[in-house]
Design a protein around this nucleic acid. Structure first.
Length: 288
DNA sequence: AAGAGGCCCTGATAGC
DNA sequence: TGCTATCAGGGCCTCT
């Protein structure tokens, strides 16, 4: 579910709440995630301070005072809930996907602090926790990933040379984390709409100007999405939880059959499955 | 060897 | 009301 902007919103919220806090204990409710939580997992956290909460791409990184790093990936359905233990069961000012009511099913991990705990919930179990022992191993862990859109390394030279001789379509390329990290299925469609590039276009056919637009609009979309607290697709019944509002700004995603929002364009938004992922685009202004 | 497709898993929704 | 089929924001593995 979460792409870079949603993970960043969670990071900001977590960092605010648990930075410099000492872990009292970790409770494993269900070890079964994409990577099974190891038996020694709780021991590594015991009495450690969380230096800070970082992020790379769609991965959260907890910096522990014993120099270990804890990666958290939310997969498709992972959510992190902050619970204020002082006021029993009241969820505090929460991070991104929180509902004001604590989920009863699919809680996997609880990290307990003084008067506060975070609860990881994940119905589909595509997310995971992973301990990384050192900074060099952390770098190694991410070595297969391309730069984030915001990095200066993600420039025209990089994009042009990456696209050379590649027959992949641009939609699949944008969600390929080896090319660029953090863009997922929603934002790929939104970025290409701003670029006026057809998602089926083979990347080797893109011009220098197209590459420039891709860089510019990737940054623009992700930046705007973060600013608006991310995108919330499914509307939960509870309305008190804090949600993102960027879904209101979608030009194409989930707008199949509707009119194109671009001024002076009379096109209709099409939904097309590309490599088993739904893709949305305007059949008129994204015709190149 | 690049690129497409299947699969991991549960829940919500649509259609009968 | 209850069945079945389809789909969902990620990433890894396998096959061609």
């Amino acid at each position: 579910m979460p792409e870079l902007p949603e993970v960043e919103v969670v990071r900001q919220s977590l960092n605010k709440k648990i930075k410099q806090k000492k872990v009292k204990k970790v409770i494993i409710r269900n070890r079964n995630l994409r990577i099974k939580i190891p038996l020694n997992f709780t021991r590594i956290f015991k009495n450690q301070k969380i230096f800070k909460v970082d992020r790379f791409s769609k991965y959260l990184i907890l910096h522990l005072s014993n120099k270990n790093f804890c990666l958290i990936h939310l997969g498709m359905s992972g959510t992190i809930h902050l619970v204020n233990d002082k006021k029993k069961n009241l969820i505090t000012n929460t991070s991104f996907y929180n509902s004001p009511v604590l989920p009863k099913k699919h809680n996997h991990v609880e990290i307990v602090f003084e008067n506060l705990r975070i609860i990881y919930n994940d119905p589909r179990r595509f997310g995971f926790f992973q301990i990384i022992k050192s900074l060099s191993l952390l770098k190694k862990r991410f070595s297969h990933l391309g730069p984030e859109p915001f990095e200066s390394k993600f420039d025209t030279n990089y994009v042009i040379s990456f696209f050379r001789n590649k027959k992949k379509n641009i939609k699949n390329m944008l969600i390929d984390q080896k090319f660029v990290s953090g863009i997922g299925n929603i934002y790929a469609s939104e970025i290409l709409f701003l670029c006026k590039i057809n998602p089926n276009k083979k990347v080797c056919l893109l011009k220098r100007d197209d590459c420039l637009k891709i860089i510019k609009n990737s940054r623009k979309i992700l930046f705007e999405a973060i600013k608006r607290g991310g995108s919330s697709i499914k509307d939960f019944k509870n309305t008190l939880g804090r949600k993102g509002t960027f879904q209101k700004k979608f030009n194409v995603y989930e707008r199949g059959g509707m009119n194109c929002k671009r001024v002076n364009c009379s096109g209709i938004i099409k939904k097309k499955t590309i490599s088993n992922r739904s893709t949305f685009f305007c059949n008129t202004c994204q015709n190149t």
